[in-house]
Design a protein around this nucleic acid. Sequence first.
RNA 1: GCCUGGGUGGGGUAAUGGUUAUCCUAAGGGAUUGUGGUUCCCUCGAUCUGGGUUCGAUUCCCGGUCCAGGCCCCA
Length: 408
Amino acid sequence: MLSRPRGTRDMLPDEMEQRREIEARMRAKARTWGYREVSTPTFEELELFTIRSGEGIIDEMYVFEDKGGRSLALRPELTAPVLRTFVNEGRSLTKPIKWCYYADCYRYERPQKGRYRQFWQFGIELIGADSAMADAEVMMVADELLRTSGVTFVMKIGHLSFMRTLLKDLPAEDQKKVRSFLDKRDTDAASAFLSETGRENLADPLQQLISARTLDEVFTVIGEIPEADRIRETFRILDSQGIQYEINPAIARGLDYYTGVVFECFAEGLGAENQILGGGAYRLAHLFGGEDTPSVGFAIGFDRVMVALGEKIWMPFQPHVTVVFTPEARDRAVAVSHELRARGIICSIDLMGRGFSAQMKNAGKSADYVVIIGEEEVKSGKATLKNMKGGEQQTLSLDEVITSLTAQ
RNA sequence: GCCUGGGUGGGGUAAUGGUUAUCCUAAGGGAUUGUGGUUCCCUCGAUCUGGGUUCGAUUCCCGGUCCAGGCCCCA
């Protein structure tokens, strides 16, 4: 027997309905902020991703050559494709551009809890705005999208200027190393690295900085930097709206193209893979041949949100109806089921050639209500509505049946 | 790429170097041709895969694979 590829999942209807519910809530929220959905190809030129993240990621991607000899890759994330789309198609659009997306991505990695080779991301990109309001808005959208899903999380916010100021005398390579230690929450290794490279004088300030939890503490360590006003303004906006967050200067997001604010959200109960959202301010458009354009965005690890939510997803109740009929009433029963569906009622009818009793038995397993159409109902033009939970039933006109079912 | 632990019907399980591999559940059918869920009966259905040891392997050994968790990585 064939099985599915490693790191992929099959999703049955119960799970899909839950995913669609959460996805719909996120989309609806993003739309209320004015973020409109875009879609990009499942595969792209390999170069799009190596420009963004370096050659090292080739090993972690699904890379292939097509019949024309092009090097292609299944998208491992969506920020680069969306920014490429902006460069290709979006130059003449009014700024700021506010886009959102929900799509599957592919990475060739070892599967773990909450980590699969095909996974889904929901994200937004705010392109062409460069302000405290822009930074704050994107974080507020992040907060609201996670909140609407029902997941319990904490948001941690940092800013690259903190670490950049502290480490400004180090060569770029060494700065990157320190950032990457911090990204792994390995502060001891970061301190050790500073000592090895003859910068032990920075070890203490580094410790102070990464344990700072207020802006005042941060600026006490690194001084009043030029970005300070904008950063204070950003947090004032968040505070004014009651957004919950933690300042954490260790949030460094190991990548070079981030330029300003960076933030990550974490959920409980997810083991090693507990980050459910990551984002920040960045500049990418110029790498893809466009104008240098400031952007802010984030991506939600949708599957991890679903794992974190577990069973606690509230689903709207929609009654399932089965039309049960006797052989001579079949055509009327089909017509009745059409009418119920036309009113948006979920309605099934026997397709197995079962007898009346067997139809009832089957309906007892899957339906909330049964609508009975037999000889009597055909004659009277009525229908019998039976509640399968309580067992009570009454014969009504079809309109009354519909009213009763849609009043739920 | 590395480490640890697992893999018995669709789901959950029992047992065993040896005769027909246990039980529960689900599914399908029937008892019951206009009234289901309870009950009873019947049916279907499994030792992940390849190799080795052995008279005989589902059991023991090795490789692979898949699953769970961790490391690396995490755009």
